[in-house]
Amino acid sequence: MSDSVLTDVVEGVLVVTINRPEARNAINTETAVAIGEAMDRLDEDRSLVAGVITGAGGTFCAGMDLKAFLAGERPSIPGRGFAGIVEGPPVKPIIAALEGYAIAGGFEIALACDMLVAAEDAKFGLPEVKRSLVAAGGGLLRLPQRIPYHVAMEWALTGELVAATRGYEVGLVNRLTPKGGALDEALGMATAIAANGPLAVAASKRILIESPEWPAAERFDRQREISEPVRSSEDAREGATAFKEKRAPRWQGR
């Protein structure tokens, strides 16, 4: 793992920190590769149930590193896209903890996450149009799925930065915190998720993501294909047994 990305494990949660504060955590190729490796680890390690991604030095991410781009770098990796996440987010839940700025590609990283926690003074947005560019890292695809259509159109076409408090008002931000508190709050959410059955958590996220594309007549059949293996798992039996015995469950991921 590169020094440009730091990782830590807390109670079944992988904490991923973009660690280029001198560049406002802008993404170069090295950083994209390292984030992609962290996402692979989150998906493949059975002891991990959820993840949190944040930035060092009081800011989340300023997007693509333009100096690296002008030097010929393309901070994208096969299968996961820009920043190692926007085209292939992890299968397991991941929460973005936003402090300072999350702009352009940095906002697109946040939008690739399942939940957002933001400090009250944080700001985010897609300012690409101000430079005659297009937010092609998933921002234009995901934003109208996260907030009302007309609000998404305003944000995307004006390119103006948006206050985290406004993001909370329109349902984009799950929780607001005082400055400096986003990571702790996101970690609290993630550890609450990680205390649950890992198979059930992954299956629930999959159904939430995939079901809008299912034909109405097939929804319950398709849901059953995902949910039944969990229902018949050892963990499901352990959950019922733990409830009966009034103790904490011991998940095995099987």
Rank of each mutant, 00 (worst) to 15 (best):
M115F: 04
G72Q: 14
D184N: 10
L116E: 05
H150A: 08
R46F: 00
A217N: 11
L157K: 04
S4M: 05
N174A: 12
A216H: 07
P78G: 08
G125L: 03
F243Q: 12
L126F: 15
L208K: 12
P90D: 05
S232G: 08
N25Y: 04
I209N: 10
G180P: 05
L161H: 11
A119M: 10
A104L: 10
Q145S: 10
L208D: 08
D45S: 12
G137D: 11
L161D: 08
W251N: 05
R206K: 15
R146G: 06
V170Q: 01
I94C: 00
G253M: 02
D40Q: 14
T31S: 13
V91N: 04
V13Y: 02
T54S: 07
E210T: 12
T241R: 14
P127S: 00
V15R: 04
M1P: 09
S227R: 10
L143W: 00
P78I: 03
K92T: 12
L199W: 02
A156P: 12
V86L: 01
L48T: 13
V91P: 00
L157T: 15
G197T: 06
A102G: 12
E238C: 12
T31L: 07
F124Y: 14
M115R: 14
R175P: 00
L187A: 00
E87V: 10
I95E: 10
V91Q: 12
M1H: 06
T177A: 04
E213S: 15
L66V: 15
V13F: 01
I77T: 09
R24K: 10
V5L: 10
N25L: 11
G100W: 01
L199C: 04
V49A: 03
G81F: 03
H150L: 11
E160Q: 08
G159C: 04
R131P: 01
T7N: 03
G171H: 06
L48V: 13
N196H: 10
T54V: 08
Q223T: 11
N196D: 12
G106D: 07
V91I: 11
L141H: 01
E30M: 11
G88V: 08
P198C: 07
E160Y: 03
V33N: 06
D8C: 03
L6K: 14
Q145I: 09
D45Q: 07
K123N: 07
V15P: 03
I53M: 03
D221W: 04
A242K: 05
D121Q: 13
N19V: 12
L66I: 14
L208N: 13
E73T: 09
L133K: 13
R219D: 02
T59K: 00
R206T: 10
